[in-house]
C-alpha cells in the first residue's frame, strides 16, 4: 500500500519545491499539504550508486528527497559505471543503481541483482567541446581527422570512447587523437586548460563545465545515443526509499532537472 503511495507523495513534494522557487503561492500550499500528510514517512538510509556524469543532478534530487523525508539519509557513490557494477556484484550495499550504459546494467541483471526492471530514464549524446573562443577553429567532427590539431577522445575501453568510435565509424572519419583519455572528465579538463583544440565528450559534460568550454553539436552524434538505465537492487535494505528515488528520477521534475543539466528525455 505504502509502496504505491510514496512515489506520488515524493513527486508532489518535489513539485512543491520547484514551485516554491517559482514563487507560486497556490502550489506552495499544495506542497505544505503534501508534506504534512505524507512527508517524513521514509526513514533510514538510502544508498544510490550512480554514474559519475549524474553527480550534480542526483545530488540535487537526493537533497529534495531528504527535505521531504527528514528521517531519511541519502548517500551517493558516484563513479564509473563499470566500477559500480563490479562493486555491486561484489556485494557492495547499494539500494539503487543508475548506469551510464546498458552494458554495465546487464552485468547487474545477469547476476540477478535487479530489484525492479531497469528502465531508461535519460539519454546523453556526444558533443564537441572546445576551449572558450574555439582557438583551434573546430567546425565539426571532420576536424578530428586532422593530425595537426591536438585532439582528445576517450579510450575505447570506457563508454565515452566506445561511443566516439561508433560516431567516427558512422561518419567514415579516421580520428587522429593525441590522447585517449581514461574518462570523460579527464578529456574535459584538457579542454578547460586549453591544452587540446577539441575533445569529444557528452552534452551533459559541456553543460556542467559552464563557461569553461564551448559545445558544438554535430549530426553524427545520433549514431551513438547513450541510454541511462536505472533500477532498484535486490540487496536493498530500504526498498521503499529506493523505489521512491527511482520514481523521483522518472518524474517530470526529475526529467526537468536532467534536461537542465544537458541530458535529454528518452526518445522512446
Amino acid at each position: 500500500m505504502r509502496l504505491r503511495a510514496l512515489p506520488a507523495l515524493a513527486v508532489a513534494g518535489l513539485l512543491a519545491l520547484t514551485a516554491c522557487g517559482g514563487g507560486s503561492s497556490d502550489t506552495a500550499s499544495t506542497s505544505s499539504a503534501a508534506s504534512s500528510s505524507g512527508g517524513g514517512e521514509l526513514t533510514g538510509t538510502l544508498t544510490v550508486f550512480a554514474a559519475a556524469s549524474l553527480t550534480d543532478v542526483f545530488t540535487e534530487l537526493g537533497d529534495q528527497l531528504m527535505a521531504e523525508n527528514p528521517d531519511l539519509q541519502v548517500t551517493f557513490n558516484f563513479a564509473g559505471s563499470s566500477a559500480l557494477a563490479t562493486q555491486i556484484t561484489q556485494g557492495a550495499p547499494a539500494d539503487v543503481f543508475a548506469s551510464a550504459n546498458r552494458e554495465q546494467m546487464t552485468v547487474v541483471t545477469d547476476a540477478s541483482l535487479d530489484g525492479s526492471d531497469p528502465t531508461v530514464f535519460t539519454e546523453n549524446v556526444l558533443e564537441i567541446a572546445v576551449p572558450p573562443g574555439n582557438p583551434g577553429g573546430i567546425t565539426g567532427l571532420a576536424d578530428f581527422g586532422d593530425a595537426d590539431r591536438t585532439i582528445a577522445i576517450c579510450a575505447p575501453d570506457v563508454p565515452c570512447g566506445a561511443a566516439a568510435e561508433q560516431v567516427f565509424t558512422a561518419a567514415g572519419i579516421t580520428a587522429q587523437p593525441d590522447t585517449l583519455e581514461e574518462d570523460v572528465r579527464a578529456a574535459l579538463t584538457k579542454v578547460e586548460l586549453g591544452e587540446v583544440d577539441a575533445a569529444l565528450v557528452y552534452a551533459s559534460d559541456v553543460q556542467g563545465a559552464g563557461d569553461g568550454v564551448e559545445g558544438i553539436e554535430f549530426p553524427e552524434a545520433e549514431d551513438a545515443v547513450n541510454e541511462y538505465p536505472i533500477c532498484t537492487l535486490t540487496g536493498s535494505q530500504n526498498p521503499a526509499a529506493a523505489q521512491a528515488f527511482v520514481d523521483l528520477v522518472e518524474s517530470d521534475a526529475g526529467q526537468q532537472a536532467l534536461t537542465d543539466a544537458g541530458f535529454r528525455s528518452p526518445s522512446s
Binding site: A155, D157, P177, L180, E182, K190
Partner: peptide, 21 residues
C-alpha cells in the same frame, strides 16, 4: 602526458584502462 599507445601509454595506464573493459 595523456594516454596514447606507443607514445605515452605506460603500463599503469594500460592496466587502468584494461580494467574498464
Amino acid at each position: 602526458a595523456g594516454n596514447f599507445p606507443g607514445t605515452t601509454q605506460t603500463m599503469p595506464l594500460a592496466v587502468y584502462l584494461a580494467l574498464q573493459s
